[in-house]
Design a protein around this nucleic acid. Structure first.
Lengths: 304, 304
DNA sequence: GCCCATAATTGTCCTAGACAAATATTGACA
DNA sequence: TGTCAATATTTGTCTAGGACAATTATGGGC
């Protein structure tokens, strides 16, 4: 019943869908329109993708998430794709501490990485640690991955290390208290939670109470949870890979379900959030905007 | 471009796929074969699902994951479905502390729940806490959800509370050391991480070192990571919802990629792991089996 | 009782076409 | 030259119906 798997020979279209996030329909239509990917066929007439094609698809997807047009990038050679990665000379502009941290990831030195992060956190304090260390490191890891300098598992290792650190920091907050009460989650299909964790830290620093629902809560459930938890704000996080119109549509729908007294904040590096205003939804472009959001919420509240 | 969203009116087939985990193809073929679901159509001829249908689909999916046959359960009424939920009188058999903990979830008292879990952990110690509190609570939450007594967001709240507690416990381990070195992760598409966290705790108690890769690592990357981290064991976790044949196929493929010196352990409540032996993969039926696995690994290692 | 051959069930893949939303391009006008 | 509206292209996702292999159930013989 379908479900071939990644043997050494090749991957089924389902597997490629899961690993790249590109729908089966999209894979098939790209093949027809742009001549890529070019899977083989098994004895059964079903598509079989090679590992190299999947790697290329992942790279293409990142370029598209960044704003490239499919017709321009699907079907390019690997070299041409790597050229478009950009971020050429500016890597030298990064502080040496960050470059060194990256080197620790590259050498799979988890312990060393964790030590360095711990020490940065202690030295800088949480807020500056988030803004000056974690945020730029995230970017650098993403860029390095695009340039083919990082394996997927190395990215996992990095993400997991940072998350563990932030989580244990957040856990040290005994109980949620303060205001506003912010319900934090992501929509179904959005699995990136690092941004949400960073937001949770920032909110906590600035005296807000966070109720973390974990990732992937359907909109209807978010509305019920906001009611049950008497939340003042619903905070949602969107990675660049999250489909733009789904994000906007769901935000609009959720806005209609929530009482007007509950604010909505949408953050993350997804461009859809900042292209056009969504009525009743506050876009939070970066971590540094969180304190402002909190402050203006309090001003509004005390004004009423 | 497609991607309608959950307004009050209805959900698109993509959204239903994301929220239920049932593929679009499956939804369409069920509609044709069993007469359910019965979505409406928008002005565009595209399927529009009601919230009630999605709830029913979620319930059906859980019954099927448990072993029911689709032809027998798809198309039953909501009442008939609830009858098959089973777990009738045995809920009285649960210890009263657990029932009380559930009540805290039901009243959305996150703080109370967290307090109670903390105190159970201190009182019982980590190992008994996992086996006598967390594991049965997981089951009870799942059952209660099937009986319609829990909302999705209440399950999220519960899961998040337990995860936060276990994570902060794990984080208190300064650095990974000990043997065997176990690389822990899940395969792409498997998002349930609670089981993995519980395993991490058990392994730590019994002197193993865990390297957590986070969820959803492709098989090839697991192999590279195992090499880079000099792992002795690769540990994978499978929830009941994970497709059976995908699990088996990928385990076989991964086994072929890994050197024979690296053991593979597969755990979780997915029935596929225990139906038939997979060569070179040790099935770990429950938490209590982890100490045995560790002990026998050590015996083997010292023997050689 | 168990075991094997046959029958039914079931999920996923295939092709090919259609269309609306998003994005780019053109042209008119200040 | 710059801005805005109208048109053209691009793009992802949906539709339909058919096919098939893997899984699970059923019957018959021992």
């Amino acid at each position: 019943m379908g479900g071939l798997e990644l043997s050494e020979k090749g991957l089924s279209i389902s597997t490629v869908e899961r690993e790249t996030g590109l729908l089966k329909d999209t894979l098939r239509v790209w093949e027809k329109r742009y001549g890529f990917p070019t899977p083989g066929r098994d004895e059964n007439g079903e598509r079989v993708y090679g590992r190299d094609q999947v790697d290329k698809l992942l790279l293409i997807k990142r370029l598209i998430d960044r704003g490239a047009r499919p017709s321009k990038v699907v079907g390019l050679s690997m070299e041409e794709l790597l050229e478009r990665t950009g971020s050429r000379a500016d890597e030298a502009a990064n502080p040496p501490e960050l470059t060194e941290a990256l080197k620790l990831v590259k050498t799979h030195n988890v312990v060393g990485l964790r030590n360095r992060l711990d020490s940065s956190l202690l030295h800088q304090g949480l807020e500056r640690f988030l803004q000056d260390t974690v945020a730029p490191l995230n970017l650098m890891v993403g860029e390095a991955w695009m340039r083919g300098e990082f394996e997927v598992f190395e990215e996992h290792l990095y993400t997991e290390s940072v998350q563990a650190l932030l989580r244990s920091t957040v856990a040290s907050v005994s109980r949620p208290s303060g205001s506003p009460r912010v319900l934090l989650t992501t929509l179904p299909g959005e699995q990136h939670i690092l941004g949400m964790l960073m937001a949770e830290c920032m909110l906590w620093i600035h005296g807000a109470a966070c109720i973390a629902l974990g990732p992937q809560t359907p909109a209807g459930e978010i509305a019920r949870a906001a009611d049950a938890q008497r939340a003042d704000v619903v905070g949602l996080s969107f990675s660049p890979a999250y489909p733009a119109h789904t994000a906007v549509d769901t935000l609009v729908a959720l806005r209609a379900m929530l009482p007007p007294g509950i604010a909505m904040w949408a953050g993350g590096s997804n461009p859809a959030l900042f292209r056009r205003r969504i009525d009743g939804v506050l876009p939070v472009r970066e971590l540094a905007a969180i304190p402002d959001a909190v402050a203006s919420w309090r001003a509004n509240r005390s004004g009423t």
